[in-house]
């Protein structure tokens, strides 16, 4: 019933090992599942539940709280148009309208060819560059209708590099070399004061003495 590929299962185990409690890996593992499959399947949630020591209902309960996790197939390119206040002031809603027309979908819809899913999103922290959007969480700024069309044309024509399929977020992963790891323990096994805090006393002694 393994959902994760064996390479990803290794990554998953490593992610679990970075947290004092396995459950903390739940959200990172949902991202990993989405990276592997484009969206989060039932099998993925069952395996994540096992890896994190929780029930599948807890995985779904946590996962469905967060917008970025999709529990149904979505397009290879997820286009998020910001319509929050700063973008709205400078044409975000009009841009979204245009996007709907160009792609022929409603907000939240996916094109028939499975290529694009269109969403309107809340502020994506590029407010000074309004109106803006993200494609698979990569920014396009101060977007005009023409820019939008050109962007779609480029993607459709395969003229994109550097834009991973939906699901892949960061292409660089943190890795911690074993010999550099300070050591991660469950809280109940880490009750000792960190050694370097002893310097407080040592220095005091030397000041006094």
């Amino acid at each position: 019933m393994s959902f994760f590929t064996s390479a990803n299962l290794d990554i998953a185990r490593e992610i679990v090992s970075r947290y004092p409690a396995p459950r903390s890996a739940l959200i990172p593992l949902l991202h990993l599942a989405q990276e592997q499959h484009g969206w989060v399947t039932g099998d993925a949630m069952r395996q994540i539940a096992d890896l994190c020591g929780v029930t599948p209902a807890e995985v779904k309960g946590t996962g469905s709280f967060y917008e970025m996790f999709k529990f149904h197939p979505v397009g290879s390119y997820l286009i998020n148009v910001c319509t929050n206040i700063s973008c709205m002031l400078l044409g975000g809603e009009e841009l979204l309208d245009h996007a709907r027309q160009r792609l022929g979908v409603k907000t939240g819809g996916t094109t028939d060819d499975g290529m694009f899913t269109l969403e309107d999103v809340e502020c994506i922290a590029a407010c000074t560059e309004a109106p803006c959007l993200q494609v698979n969480y990569r920014y396009r700024l101060r977007v005009t209708n023409d820019d939008f069309d050109e962007m779609i044309d480029d993607i459709q024509a395969g003229r994109v590099d550097d834009l991973p399929r939906h699901g892949t977020l960061a292409r660089v992963r943190q890795r911690i070399p074993a010999d550099r790891l300070a050591g991660i323990l469950p809280p109940d096994k880490a009750r000792e004061a960190p050694v370097w805090l002893q310097r407080n006393n040592a220095a005091e002694d030397s000041v006094v003495g």
């Binding site: 959200i27 996962g63 050591g183």
Partner: peptide
């Protein structure tokens, strides 16, 4: 030094 700490990057997910 005797100072050791791990810094772990965690991603949010939209909330």
């Amino acid at each position: 030094t005797d100072f050791s700490v791990d810094v772990v990057l965690t991603w949010g997910a939209g909330a």
